[in-house]
Structure formats: structure tokens, C-alpha cells
Design a protein around this nucleic acid. Structure first.
Ligand SMILES: Nc1ncnc2c1ncn2[C@H]1C[C@H](O)[C@@H](COP(=O)(O)OP(=O)(O)OP(=O)(O)O)O1
Ligand SMILES: [Mg+2]
Ligand SMILES: [Mg+2]
Ligand SMILES: [Mg+2]
Length: 1192
DNA sequence: CGGATCGAC
DNA sequence: CTATGTCGATCCG
């Protein structure tokens, strides 16, 4: 029992112990299980991480695939590029070959002839332009940009790849770290496992389930481990793949880079090849250009010839018709002549018999008388009579012979004429052949130039007026010319014959008479009879001559009626022109740098102006084309034009010029349309009117006066050279980078001109020295010259600072000098006084003198003779542009009508009369006749006259400024204010007030806008002028401008209020209103609102409108109103005094003008001297002739 | 009268 | 970069 109890107790104790052990083991198990769980969780997270990693790796792979495809795309592109390049080089080669071929062809065809040449040039040009220039350059650019882009892209890709590689590396590192942590965990797990194993060993029996679980766990763990290992290996593999890919990628990138470099090398090569090509192209272009110039030359020639040929064809058609008529008439005339000869012969025989009879009777009578007186004397008389009879008989015989010879010569004449006709026909044929040829040429040329310059070409260029000129000289027609030149002119020959035979006859009679004079009164009868006979024979011969002249004149009088306009006019002009050329003399001083050959017209070259010839786009608007080539042969005009165009073409200014030119073109086109639509009747009517006008003008022509026009040479520049003699030999201009006022003659050799922007001038002449203008110096120099002018004409008319008109008629008379001598003296005098040179024109009127002064420009003089013939000869070929008042636009307009010279002005008088205003036609016709002002001061247009001038000679006064582009309203208003202040100051110093104010704006695109107000009264103070100006300005906002200007007009002399009113009061001439105003002003207080003070109220209104005090606002409307009234009253008092005074004040003495004008920086050259006489040249001319107009 | 244009220096 | 300033005449709406 005890032992059993004891063993039982032992067993229970052991069991307890075992139980405890088991519980501890269980605890340990639980712990282990926890551990396992934790490990499993860790493993799960690792798993997640692995999955994530795989995802990222997948992503990476996708990226890599993307990159791969990109890369392949890129490669494809590169291949494409390569392909393009190859194609291009092929095409380049092809074009090169083509070019070479074409070049050869050119060379051949150039020699071969002109026909193929032009077509080929067109084709080549096309090819050159299209395939070479555009295509190649564009393609190249495209390639280059594509290459650049792909290069950029590849570098971008490369960097992206690099970034990717970095990323992969980082991932790898992470993987490594993960691997190592996995290993650690593994070791830990193994340890735990071993512990577990040991624990299991101890509890194997009791805890089979536990063991099973543990083994299951083990298996699981193994599985996990396997998975992990797989993962690790797969990751490793993928990273390996990655690495492989990476290296591949890097390799390919390197390859790409290399290929890129190679490509860029190739591109460079290509570029250099292109450069070469370009050079070649340049050469080709040069050749092209040369060819083009020759082609344009040919073209113009063609134009000339074509038009001429057309004219000739028509003229010849006419001539042929005429010739037919003429031949018919000729035969008629021959018949008639023969008839007349026969009649004449019969008459002469009859006369002979009469003569014999008469003589017999006379002899009988004489013999009777002699018988009754002295037989000796009778015998002598009989003898002399007999001799006389014989002689007259012989003469008659001679006459008969000559008449016979005449009829005999008639046949010769007819044959001669026939040969002429033949010649004409030959000419006709040859010119027709030429025409055909030219027609072919022209069509070729036209196709060549089609589209290249058509858009900007002027409607009428030299191509059209040149032929007209040609035609006009040839439309006198070969037939007539022949008649006038190959034979003597009929109008000359007849009187010549007439007078010479008369003289002969008279001489014969005189020689015959001395012997018979002794016969006394008895023989006088006899002589009378003889004279009668002689006269009859004379008449006979005259008839004969007349017949011949009629023959030569190729048409019976009835026919001439139709032609009479042309014929008589042309005849008159011819008569005036041809023999008198020597009247146009040109004298240069011995020191004159350019003495010109006399005789030939100095404008011949100008007429063939090359202005339009260079690419029309380049020339049009780029310059005024005013240059006179005769004085400046050294100027390379083409180059100048090119440079000016190059500098201009992209500027806003140029665009504006083009816009304006387009407008002009439209107007000209309309004018031409109107000209074309004129009916014959209308033209005839205008022709008549113009003829009447011409007659009237001609009647007023005054050749009795001698005018000089003196114009200083390069005035501002020369004055500057006085102070800086070193500049005299260098090219120099007065002005700045923005604008040049003038240049010395050295600079002009480079094409530098007045009104040219300085930066363009510097392009033309890099050494050009710029000098800032100093107007006071020029005024001083001008004054010095005028001191000299005064000596020769105390009433000389100053045209500007640098020129003057002098009527030296009286001086010439007083010193018995010619105009030329006075001119020489004047030039010497000016130079002595100022060390400045001038050029002088001498002529019978002011206008011609001005034209002449320009002919021998630097330091020379020229004369237009004081005869109608000399004037007409001078004017005949004078280019219209030379006429003062005809500028660029008028020139173009007239050119469109075929008028290039003053002679044409007369020829086209009907058109002129029809198309232009009466004042313009007056002007043009006067120019055509070479008329101009011959007197100054005679018509009294000036000086305090008739109230219209308001006591002021000038019509307006203004102030304007150019500045950096401006759009801010505040800034603009400030500018307006300073301008108004300047203007007010100028007006103050001139003592004038204005009723009309004009604001001028020039927008940044050079378009000019003007806006004007006319105020109810005159203003001259800035406070009064600013508000209206601001109002005008505000109406234009918003805008961006480069210039602003203010101008006052409707001027009147101003009298300060005090002065005016006091003076008026002193004169007792105040009316009630004025007295009231005076009172109001003195009190400076509210004035009674007189019923008739409308002016003041208007002023007030104006003030409010003026905007400055639109502040009539919130609080004290009453007060503001009051203030306004005050202000208005003050305004009325201060600026409108004269407007309130009686009209009779208006013709008070003119106010003295101060001679200082622009004190500021403008280039203006203010003509105060001209103002003194009130004449400007066109005005002078027009007024003169209006004056003449009124006289009859 | 207002606006644009032309011409000249 | 960079294209004037002043004045008169004329035309047209
Ligand atoms: N477009 C202009 N703008 C401003 N000032 C000018 C302009 N043209 C000329 N002037 C000034 C400068 C000139 O020296 C002066 C006289 O002009 P002008 O007689 O025509 O030329 P010029 O005296 O300089 O040379 P020349 O008479 O020898 O041809 O007027
Ligand atoms: Mg001059
Ligand atoms: Mg001048
Ligand atoms: Mg002119």
C-alpha cells in the first residue's frame, strides 16, 4: 500500500513534473510558433517586396522594351536620314550635272544666238531658283533640324538610359541587401529549427501531433525556402538579363553615338559641299545677272524698237497710202504741169509777139520822136533799144528753156520720187523683217520676265516713252523729211529764188539804165514798159516755181487742212528749234571743276534714265532717282541703289513708301484710263483750248529782263568746311545717323545725298564724316551772301538760306555788262565775301535761271539766251523733273502720258488741257514754253495787303519732333505740352496768334495723321493752346507714335491785351464792348454779361470742350461754373482782343518779322527772305502768269 | 474747314 | 538701332 501509494505519488509527481515540462515545452513551442509566424510574416513581406520588385523589374523591362522600340525607331529614322542624304547627294549630283550641262548649253547658246538663250535662262532660272535654292536649302535645313532633333533625342535617351541603369543598380543593391537579410534569417531559422528538433526529440513521444505540425512547418519552411531561393535566383537572372540588356543598350548607344558623329561629319562634309555648290551657284548667278542685264538692255532696246516699229508700221501704212495718193497726184500734177507748161509756152509766144508788136510800135514812136529831134540820139536810142530787145528776148528764151528744163526735170523728179518710194518700200520690208524678229524676241523675253517683276513695275516705264520720242521724230515721216532735207525746204526756197531773181532783175535794170538815163523823161515811159515786161516774165518764172513747190509739197492745199494742226505746230517748233541751238550757251569759270562741252543737250543721258532697270522691286520707292548723271559720272548708281535697297527693304519706312507708291500707281492708272476714254471731239476741243492758252501765254512773254539765280554749293557742308578745312578733302555730311541734310561733293561721289538717312550713307561710304548741323552759322553765312546779292539787285528775292533770284536788268544797263558778266562778277563777289562758292543761272526769267543754276553745279554758271528761239531750244529736251515744282510724282504722272521733256508738254497740250486742272495745265504749258516770273513785287501779293493776311506774311507756324516709339497717353500728353510751349514761344517771338490748331501724329509705321480745330478766336499762349490740342490728341488714343507736331494757322498779328486795348483806348476807338472788356480786365473780376459778348461765351464753351477743365464735378457745380466763367473771361480778354476789335484795325501796318526761326534742332531752313517778298518760285511763276492772265 | 499729298530746301 | 523739320500750294470732300 505505501509503496503503491508512494509509487503512485511518484508517478503523479513525475507526471506533474512532466506536465510542467510539457507546459514549458508548449510555451516554448508557442514561442517558436510565434517566431515562426513572425518569420512567416517577414517572409510574406519579403514576398510582397519580391512581387513588387518583380513588378518594377517588369516595368523596367517594359521601359526597356519601349526604349528598344524607340531605339529601333531612331535607327529607322537614321536609316531614313541616311537614305535621304543619299538621295539628296544623288540629286545634288544630278543637279550639278544638270547645271554643268546647262552651263555648257548656255555657253553654246550664248554664242549660238539670243533666241534659245532667253528660254533657257528662264528654264535655268526656274531650276536654279526652285530646285537649287528653295528645294535644296529647305531640304538641307529640314535634314539638319531632323538630325539635330534626333541627336538631341538620342542624347536624351542616353541620359534616360543612364538614369535607368542607375536605377537598376540601386535595385540590384536592394536585392543584394535583401539576399543578405534573407541569409541571416535563414541562419536564424536553422538555429531555431535545431532548437526545435532538440525540443521535439525530447517531446517526440508525447507530442506527435506537435512533431507532425512541426514537420509540416518544416516542409512549409523548406518550400518557402525553395521559393525564396527561386525568387532570388530569378531576380538574379533578371538582373543579369538587365545587365545584359544594359550593356547591349550601352553598346548600341555607343554605336548610335558613333553613327551620329559620323553623320554629323557627313553633314559637315555635306555643308562644305553645299558651300562649294553655293559658290558655284554664285558664279552662275553672276553670269545670270550679266545675262539678265544684257537681256534687260535687249528688252529696252526691243521695247524701243518695237514701239518705233509699230509707229513706223503705222506711219508706213499711212505713208504708203499717202504714197499711193501722192503718186496719183503726181501724175495729175505732171499732166497739169505739162498743160501749164504748154499754156505757159503759148502765153510766152503770145507775149513775145505782143512784145515784138509793142517794141515795133515803140521803136516807130521813138524813131518819129528822134526824127523830130536829134538823129544821133535817136540812133543811139534805137541801138540801146535793140540791145534791150535782144536781151529780153534772150531772157525770155532762157525762161522758156528753164521751163522746158523744168518739165524735163520733172520726169527726173518723178523718177527720183519713184526711187524714194522704192527706198521707202525697202525700208518697210526690212523693218517688217526686224519686227518679226523682234516679235519673237519679245515673246521670249516676256516669258522670261513673267512674274518676276510685274507686280511692282510702273504702268509706264521708259520702255513706253522712249519709243514715243522716237516716234515723234520719225512721225514727221521719212517722206516729209526727205522733202525737207534732200531738197531745200519749199518755204525757204521759194522766197530765196524770188528775192534773188528780183535783185537780179533790179540790178540788170540798174545796169541797163545809165546809158539811157540821158534820154530824159521820154525814155522813162519806155523803161516802165520794159519793167512791166520783166515783171511779166518774172511772174511766169514764179508760176513755174510755184508749180514745182506744189509738186514738192506733195499735196494740194485742200489736203493740208486736215494735217494743219500738226504740220503748223511742228513747223513752228522746228523753225524755232533747229537753227538756234547755239543760243544755249554754258559758261564755266576758268576755275570751274567741270567745264562742259557746249552744244549737245546736257540731258540726253537723263532722258534714257536707267532708274527702272534694276529689279523693279529694288528701285521703286527706294530712291527718288533725281540724280543728274551729267555732273556726277563717278557715282556707281547701281551699287548705290542696291545698297539703299538692301538697307531699306525690311524697314517699316520702306513699307510705308511702298504703300504710298501703290496709291500713286492707282491714280496714274485712273488718269490713263481717262485719257484713253477721251473722244476725238473732246480732244479736238481741248487742243483748241490749249492752243488758245498757248497763244495767250506767248503774248505775255517778256524777254526783256535778265534774271540770275544763285545757289550756294553744298551749302551747309561748305560752311562747315570753313571751320574745319581738313574736312574739305574728305567725304562729309551734315546731319546724324538718322538724317543727313546735305553732303559735300566728295561724299556725293559715293551717292550720299540730302534727305538720306545717315546709317545708309555710312553704308555707302564708311569713311563718311558726320558733322552736327549748326543753323546759326548757316544763317550768318547766308546773310553774308545776301550782302553781296544786294549789290547787284537791291530787291533780290531770297529763295531760301542758300539761294536767291536777282533781276539784274538794271545793273546790266547801268554797267553795260551782259548777264553772264554780272553772273561771273557775282560769283567772284560771293566767294570773296564768304569763301564759299555758288553756281549761277542766267536767263530771261526766274524759273529758267533756277534751272540753269543747276546745270554746271559745283561753282559754275550757265546761260539761257534771251530770245524766244534760245528759250524754246533750251526747254525742248529739258527733262520735266528739272522744272521746279515737278517732283517725283508729277514726273511719273506725266511720264505715263508719254511726257518726259518739256517739249512733250507742248506736244501733248490737248491731253494736258483735258486731264489737269486749269491751274496745273497753266503751269505745265508755261513750263513747255519756258515761261517764268519776270518781275517781282509788281502784282502786290504781299505785305499787309487786303486784310487776308491778317498782317502776317506767313501762313502757318509749326513745331514737331521725332522720338522713340511712344504709346503711353501720359507721356504723349506731356510731349504735347512741351511742343505747345515751343510753338507758343515761337509765336510769341513772331508776335502772331492762330485761330486754327493742327495736331500731327506719325504712327510707328510712318503713316501721318493730322487733326485740326478752328477756334472761335485767335490764341498764342500755351495755356490757351494746350487744351484744344489735348482734346485732339485724346481723340486719337490709343495709338503708338514716333512723331508729334503742333501747327498754328489762320494767323493774325497779336497785340498784347494791354497794348491793344490801351492803344485802342488812346485812339478813342473803343466801342462799348471793348470798353467793358477793358474794364473787366483791369478789375480782374466778374464782368457783366453783356448781351453781345457771344465771343466770350463761345470761348467758354471751347474751354470746356477743350477738356482741360472737364472737372465740373460733384460738390460745387455752381462754384465750378463760376470758375469756368472767370477762366473764360480771362481767356477772352487775353487772346481774343483783336477778334473783338473793329475790322478797320486789320489793315494796320504789317508787323516786323524777326528773322530767327527755328531755334531748336530741326533741319528746317526757314525762308524769311522769301517771306519779305512773299514769293516762292512756283508761286512766283503761277502768280505772274495769273497776272498775265488777267491783263487781257 | 479738314485732311491728305506734293514739292522744295 | 537708326528714315528730319518747316513751310506753302493744291485738290477733294
Ligand atoms: N531735305 C532736306 N532737309 C533738310 N534740309 C535740307 C534738305 N535739303 C537741303 N537742305 C538744306 C541743306 C542744304 O545745304 C541747303 C541747300 O539745299 P540745296 O541747295 O538743295 O543743296 P546744297 O546747297 O546742299 O547742294 P547743291 O546746291 O550744291 O546741290 O538746304
Ligand atoms: Mg545749294
Ligand atoms: Mg538751294
Ligand atoms: Mg523738279
Amino acid at each position: 500500500m505505501d509503496s503503491a501509494n508512494g509509487s503512485h505519488e511518484d508517478a503523479t509527481l513525475l507526471l506533474a513534473i512532466k506536465d510542467a515540462e510539457i507546459s514549458t515545452l508548449r510555451q516554448q513551442m508557442a514561442q517558436l510558433a510565434d517566431d515562426l509566424k513572425r518569420n512567416l510574416a517577414v517572409l510574406a513581406t519579403k514576398d510582397d517586396e519580391a512581387i513588387k520588385l518583380r513588378n518594377t523589374v517588369d516595368g523596367l523591362r517594359a521601359v526597356l522594351a519601349e526604349k528598344d522600340s524607340l531605339f529601333s525607331q531612331f535607327q529607322a529614322q537614321v536609316q531614313e536620314l541616311e537614305l535621304f542624304r543619299v538621295q539628296e547627294s544623288e540629286q545634288r549630283l544630278a543637279t550639278e550635272q544638270l547645271l554643268a550641262a546647262k552651263q555648257k548649253e548656255w555657253a553654246q547658246q550664248l554664242e549660238a544666238g539670243q533666241q534659245g538663250r532667253e528660254a533657257e535662262v528662264a528654264a535655268l532660272r526656274q531650276q536654279l531658283k526652285d530646285s537649287e535654292e528653295k528645294w535644296l536649302e529647305q531640304l538641307m535645313q529640314a535634314r539638319q533640324t531632323a538630325l539635330d532633333e534626333s541627336m538631341q533625342r538620342s542624347t536624351q535617351q542616353q541620359s534616360a538610359l543612364e538614369r535607368e541603369a542607375e536605377h537598376v543598380q540601386r535595385l540590384q543593391q536592394q536585392l543584394d541587401m535583401l539576399g543578405s537579410s534573407l541569409a541571416v534569417k535563414e541562419a536564424e531559422l536553422e538555429a531555431a529549427h535545431r532548437q526545435l528538433g532538440a525540443a521535439l526529440d525530447t517531446t517526440q513521444k508525447m507530442e506527435a501531433t506537435h512533431a507532425q505540425a512541426v514537420s509540416a512547418k518544416d516542409a512549409l519552411i523548406a518550400q518557402l525556402q525553395q521559393q525564396l531561393e527561386q525568387q532570388a535566383s530569378s531576380i538574379a537572372a533578371s538582373t543579369g538579363d538587365h545587365e545584359n540588356n544594359m550593356t547591349k543598350l550601352i553598346k548600341s548607344i555607343n554605336e548610335m553615338q558613333q553613327s551620329c558623329q559620323a553623320q554629323s561629319l557627313e553633314v559637315q562634309e555635306y555643308a562644305s559641299a553645299q558651300k562649294k555648290l553655293r559658290d558655284e551657284r554664285k558664279v552662275l548667278r553672276e553670269q545670270m545677272r550679266q545675262m539678265e542685264t544684257t537681256i534687260t538692255k535687249l528688252q529696252t532696246e526691243k521695247g524701243v524698237l518695237e514701239a518705233a516699229l509699230q509707229h513706223e508700221v503705222t506711219a508706213q501704212a499711212g505713208a504708203q497710202a499717202q504714197l499711193n495718193i501722192f503718186q496719183a497726184k503726181l501724175t495729175e500734177a505732171v499732166v497739169e504741169l505739162e498743160k501749164r507748161c504748154a499754156a505757159a509756152e503759148t502765153r510766152s509766144t503770145k507775149l513775145m509777139s505782143q512784145l515784138v508788136e509793142e517794141r515795133g510800135r515803140l521803136v516807130d514812136a521813138v524813131i518819129e520822136q528822134a526824127n523830130s529831134s536829134t538823129p544821133q540820139l535817136a540812133a543811139e536810142l534805137a541801138k540801146s533799144l535793140e540791145a534791150d530787145r535782144l536781151r529780153t528776148q534772150a531772157e525770155l528764151q532762157g525762161e522758156r528753156l528753164t521751163s522746158q528744163r523744168g518739165s524735163g526735170g520733172l520726169a527726173g523728179l518723178v523718177s527720183e520720187l519713184q526711187s524714194d518710194v522704192d527706198k521707202l518700200q525697202q525700208q518697210l520690208h526690212s523693218s517688217r523683217r526686224q519686227l518679226n524678229w523682234q516679235g519673237q524676241q519679245s515673246s521670249a523675253v516676256e516669258s522670261l520676265n513673267a512674274g518676276s517683276d510685274g507686280a511692282l513695275r510702273r504702268p509706264d516705264s521708259s520702255g513706253s516713252h522712249m519709243p514715243r520720242r522716237h516716234a515723234s521724230s520719225s512721225s514727221n515721216s521719212p517722206a516729209r523729211n526727205h522733202g525737207q532735207h534732200s531738197m531745200h525746204s519749199p518755204s525757204n526756197r521759194t522766197p530765196l529764188r524770188h528775192s534773188s531773181s528780183l535783185a537780179d532783175a533790179a540790178g540788170g535794170a540798174a545796169a541797163a539804165s545809165p546809158g539811157s538815163a540821158a534820154a530824159g523823161g521820154a525814155s522813162e515811159e519806155l523803161h516802165d514798159a520794159l519793167r512791166y515786161l520783166l515783171n511779166r516774165t518774172e511772174q511766169l518764172s514764179l508760176e513755174n516755181g510755184a508749180l514745182r513747190t506744189q509738186l514738192l509739197d506733195q499735196g494740194p492745199p485742200a489736203n493740208t487742212v486736215h494735217h494743219s494742226h500738226k504740220a503748223t505746230a511742228a513747223g513752228a517748233l522746228d523753225a524755232g528749234r533747229s537753227p538756234q541751238h547755239h543760243h544755249l550757251q554754258q559758261h564755266s569759270s576758268p576755275r570751274s571743276k567741270n567745264s562742259k562741252g557746249a552744244g549737245g543737250s546736257p540731258y540726253a543721258r537723263l532722258a534714257a534714265n536707267s532708274y527702272h532697270r534694276i529689279a523693279a522691286a529694288a528701285a521703286d520707292g527706294a530712291s527718288d532717282g533725281e540724280d543728274d548723271s551729267s555732273s556726277m559720272q563717278n557715282v556707281d548708281k547701281e551699287k548705290v541703289k542696291r545698297i539703299v535697297y538692301e538697307m531699306s527693304k525690311d524697314s517699316a519706312h520702306f513699307k510705308n513708301e511702298q504703300r504710298k507708291q501703290a496709291q500713286v500707281d492707282v491714280r496714274i492708272a485712273q488718269l490713263k484710263a481717262r485719257a484713253a476714254s477721251l473722244s476725238q471731239a473732246e480732244l479736238a476741243a481741248h487742243q483748241k483750248a490749249a492752243d488758245a492758252k498757248l497763244a495767250q501765254l506767248e503774248a505775255g512773254r517778256d524777254l526783256s529782263r535778265t534774271w540770275l539765280h544763285a545757289d550756294m554749293d553744298a551749302f551747309y557742308a561748305s560752311v562747315e568746311e570753313l571751320d574745319r578745312p581738313d574736312l574739305a578733302s574728305k567725304p562729309m555730311a551734315v546731319g546724324g545717323m538718322g538724317m543727313i541734310t546735305t553732303a559735300n561733293y566728295e561724299a556725293r561721289k559715293f551717292g550720299v545725298r540730302s534727305a538720306m538717312p545717315g546709317f545708309i550713307a555710312r553704308k555707302l561710304c564708311p569713311q563718311l564724316v558726320f558733322v552736327k548741323p549748326d543753323f546759326r552759322k548757316y544763317e550768318a553765312a547766308s546773310a553774308a551772301t545776301r550782302e553781296v546779292f544786294k549789290l547787284y539787285d537791291p530787291h533780290f528775292v531770297a529763295g531760301s538760306l542758300d539761294e536767291a533770284y536777282l533781276d539784274v536788268t538794271d545793273y546790266c544797263a547801268a554797267h553795260s555788262m551782259t548777264g553772264e558778266q554780272v553772273a561771273a562778277a557775282l560769283r567772284a563777289g560771293v566767294e570773296a565775301a564768304t569763301r564759299l562758292t555758288c553756281s549761277v543761272g542766267v536767263a530771261p526769267n526766274a524759273t529758267l535761271a533756277k534751272v540753269a543754276s543747276d546745270l554746271n553745279k559745283p561753282n559754275g554758271q550757265a546761260l539761257v539766251g534771251s530770245s524766244r528761239e534760245a528759250v524754246m531750244a533750251f526747254v525742248q529736251d529739258l527733262p520735266i523733273r528739272k522744272v521746279p515744282g515737278i517732283g517725283k510724282v508729277s514726273e511719273q504722272t506725266l511720264n505715263a502720258l508719254g511726257i518726259t521733256s518739256c517739249g512733250h508738254l507742248l506736244q501733248q497740250r490737248a491731253l494736258i488741257s483735258a486731264l489737269f486742272s486749269s491751274i496745273s495745265s497753266h503751269f505745265f504749258l508755261s513750263a513747255g514754253l519756258g515761261l517764268g516770273a519776270t518781275q517781282h513785287g509788281s502784282s502786290r501779293g504781299d505785305e499787309g495787303g487786303a486784310g487776308a493776311g491778317g498782317g502776317v506774311s506767313r501762313k502757318g507756324i509749326s513745331c514737331e519732333r521725332t522720338f522713340a516709339n511712344m504709346s503711353s497717353p501720359a507721356e504723349m500728353e506731356k510731349m504735347a505740352e512741351t511742343l505747345v510751349q515751343h510753338l507758343a514761344a515761337d509765336m510769341e517771338s513772331e508776335g502772331i496768334a492762330a485761330k486754327t490748331l493742327t495736331l500731327k501724329l506719325k504712327t510707328t509705321d510712318f503713316a501721318v495723321r493730322t487733326r485740326a480745330v478752328t477756334l472761335p478766336g485767335h490764341v498764342h499762349m500755351p495755356q490757351q493752346m494746350l487744351p484744344p490740342v489735348l482734346k485732339l490728341l485724346r481723340a486719337e488714343l490709343p495709338c503708338e507714335i514716333r512723331l508729334m507736331g503742333v501747327r498754328g494757322s489762320a494767323l493774325r498779328r497779336v497785340v498784347t491785351t494791354g497794348d491793344a486795348l490801351d492803344a485802342a483806348a488812346a485812339g478813342g476807338r473803343l466801342n462799348a464792348l471793348q470798353r467793358m472788356i477793358l474794364q473787366g480786365r483791369r478789375q480782374q473780376q466778374q464782368q457783366g454779361e453783356a448781351a453781345d459778348q457771344q465771343e466770350g461765351q463761345q470761348q467758354q464753351q471751347q474751354q470746356q470742350d477743350g477738356g482741360q477743365c472737364a472737372a465740373a464735378g460733384e460738390e460745387s457745380g455752381q462754384h465750378a461754373q463760376h470758375m469756368e466763367e472767370h477762366r473764360a473771361a480771362a481767356a477772352a480778354l487775353s487772346y481774343d482782343v483783336l477778334d473783338l476789335l473793329d475790322e478797320d484795325d486789320e489793315d494796320e501796318e504789317g508787323i516786323g518779322r524777326s528773322d530767327v526761326g527755328c531755334s531748336h534742332a530741326g533741319f528746317g531752313d526757314d525762308d524769311e527772305g522769301a517771306a519779305a517778298w512773299g514769293w516762292r518760285l512756283p508761286a512766283l511763276l503761277v502768280q505772274m502768269q495769273l497776272h498775265m492772265h488777267r491783263v487781257p
